[in-house]
């Protein structure tokens, strides 16, 4: 009896310790490897619209070379044949060039939408697409608030085309092709934290040059692409009405309710069935 009780307390103690320590050990690695996503800072005040990034991007990703060039008032679209595009806008401060590509959100809607994890936010920061997992449902396209993923509608083996921040080059210690080939230094690659600091520094040092906002700092819960502009962002065709919380947040409530319904519903249904069993007899009498 004594031994039993002692061993019982021992067990209790060990279980308690495991719970207490278990939590700690689980939390530790998360703290030590604090997420430091890689990102890109794009400064449209520096961009001269030379399309070097477009050509470098096409070459790096085996896509056809661009055949037209940015002109003011002409809107060139992202398509399944390119991964980034430069447009020219007539603004209150004259013509301004802007490059458009995947925003590499901190919490991407496409990643949360993908039921095969083909769309994947890597721990390095880039959001990549993996063809061996993708089943081509295009839910990523429905969900992306920036309308970025493009689908090859005219292929029997269609792929999703979108910027992956040159993930394979980054993995080998390189930098994205567009950043490497920009002669105007409008595209800077680095960790998101450093880039935010740099962006703020530029705004503070030359406040006349910049519109006081870093697009991507808060939009859609924060993005890996950060933009600086001389004019308000709606003049450059940016979506400025996007929410500042992440998009996966929108379906979280529904997903959280699933387990409780799975537990509650069958119990309620069985209860109802037992409670209404007499109906059966009553109906028979009526017949």
């Amino acid at each position: 009896m004594n031994v039993n009780r002692r061993s019982f307390f021992q067990m209790l103690g060990i279980t308690g310790l495991t719970f207490a320590l278990g939590k700690k050990t689980k939390a530790n690695p998360n703290n030590s490897s604090r997420i430091d996503f890689k990102g890109i800072l794009y400064d449209s005040t520096r961009c001269v619209g030379c399309q070097s990034c477009e050509f470098a991007c096409a070459e790096a990703n085996n896509l056809p070379e661009p055949t037209d060039s940015p002109e003011a008032g002409k809107f060139r679209k992202l398509s399944e044949f390119n991964r980034c595009i430069v447009n020219c806008y007539n603004t209150s401060k004259g013509e301004v060039y802007v490059k458009k590509q995947c925003m590499h959100c901190n919490e991407p809607a496409c990643d949360a939408a993908c039921l095969t994890q083909a769309m994947n936010k890597t721990k390095e920061g880039p959001v990549i697409w993996r063809g061996n997992k993708c089943m081509g449902c295009r839910y990523c396209m429905v969900s992306c608030p920036f309308d970025i993923p493009k689908f090859e509608y005219h292929s029997a083996n269609p792929k999703i085309q979108k910027c992956d921040m040159c993930f394979s080059r980054i993995s080998e210690g390189g930098i994205p092709a567009c950043a490497e080939n920009c002669p105007a230094e409008a595209i800077v690659f680095g960790t998101r934290r450093e880039l935010l600091k740099e962006a703020r520094k530029r705004i503070v040092e030359t406040p006349d040059l910049y519109y006081d906002h870093i697009y991507g700092e808060h939009e859609a819960g924060g993005t890996g692409l950060l933009y600086l502009s001389p004019v308000p962002f709606q003049e450059l065709g940016f979506k400025t009405t996007l929410q500042n919380s992440s998009y996966p947040e929108l379906s979280k409530g529904f997903l959280y309710s699933v387990p409780s319904i799975f537990v509650l519903w069958p119990a309620i249904l069985i209860g109802l069935r037992e409670a209404t069993k007499n109906n059966h007899l009553k109906n028979h009498e009526n017949d």
């Binding site: 039921l115 095969t116 063809g131 061996n132 997992k133 993708c134 089943m135 081509g136 449902c137 295009r138 689908f151 090859e152 083996n157 269609p158």
Partner: peptide, 12 residues
Amino acid sequence: LDLGRPWNVINP
């Protein structure tokens, strides 16, 4: 019919 890559439908 609507899946672009239906052979991967077994993945999930």
